[in-house]
Design a protein around this nucleic acid. Structure first.
Lengths: 166, 166
DNA sequence: GCGCGTTCGCAATATTCTTGCGCTTGGGGC
DNA sequence: GCCCCAAGCGCAAGAATATTGCGAACGCGC
């Protein structure tokens, strides 16, 4: 199913909606060079086929008082599937954990966390994360600044043709 | 300016728009319990004041043929501001690099990358990244799977009151 | 050469967005 | 305690947008 067939217009639509997810359909149609109705139909199709997973407002964590971002490298004691899932589930319940990726190599998980300040992060760290069962070791790195953030710099859909599909 | 005053309704708006950025204003107003016009005015204010940085379609990289995600830890030779900026600028020019965060500690940068397959990632790695000036060492970790992704699991705006502001 | 399916654009209707306006509510100052 | 002011709400109307149905053009295979 994935990577069926996207023409140039579909790719432009994805790029535009990635840059501005609230763009009006009329404006979108104008930019990709077709009229509104077929444009809307294409968008619906892209949504149904899973190319577009959803739309989200990009809320600034700092404005809400989340001033620190931290990457956390976690090693577990056991890497059995049950334990891996258990850890993921635990992450799902921690509001400070915004992303949770399972990795290969020596580190089992990398987490991206946010917190109002260092103190509350450290309290989370010692009170929750390192205290959780099966956690062997934890290494943290404060984010000083970020040059490229996810939503602001959408990955280049127009280059996606380079990614050949079966 | 940050963290001025958000009431309960503002927080609900942020939470709803984070979950579904294309929600109609009428629907949004219904959910937060006010009528459409004041709801739209609140949204506009939140945008102007920077609480909402933008809206973005969440495009599935896999559907587009980007099957591998990789975290890359980068150390530089020199950490002078000029060199740091130069590296950030270089990252900005690499389409495979979707995020670039400067860290404290031994590692200078962590990058989140996507690629169509391992081969093209490794070609990027050896041909571009490690070949770039001032790059001392590079360590990569493949993402096996992710339990919590950024847009799917918005951080909990309703808990944001815990983040006290000046 | 001729259907056949796909996708387009046009037109019409339904829904939403957007602005102006009057009203209620809550909080000082006197 | 009373008045006044500011902030925020809802209502209503006009403008813009979304959405559906339909006929026409294009490309493809037979």
């Amino acid at each position: 199913m994935p990577g069926a067939k996207l023409d140039e217009i579909d790719r432009m639509i994805l790029a535009e909606l990635q840059a501005d997810g609230r763009m009006t359909n009329v404006e979108l149609a104008r930019r990709v060079g077709i009229s509104a109705p077929p444009c809307l139909r294409r968008v619906r199709t892209l949504e149904e086929q899973g190319y577009i997973r959803g739309y989200h407002a990009d809320v600034d964590p700092r404005e809400l008082g989340f001033d620190v971002s931290v990457f956390v490298m976690v090693r577990l004691v056991s890497q059995s599937e049950a334990e891996l899932s258990a850890f993921e589930a635990r992450c799902g319940g921690w509001p400070l954990v915004r992303e949770c990726h399972m990795l290969n190599g020596e580190v089992d998980f990398i987490l991206k966390c946010v917190a109002p300040d260092l103190r509350s992060f450290q309290s989370f760290l010692t009170g929750e994360l390192t205290a959780a069962p099966n956690v062997a070791s934890v290494k943290t790195s404060l984010v000083i600044r970020n040059a490229k953030a996810e939503p602001g710099v959408p990955f280049d859909v127009l280059e996606a043709r380079l990614a050949r599909k079966a």
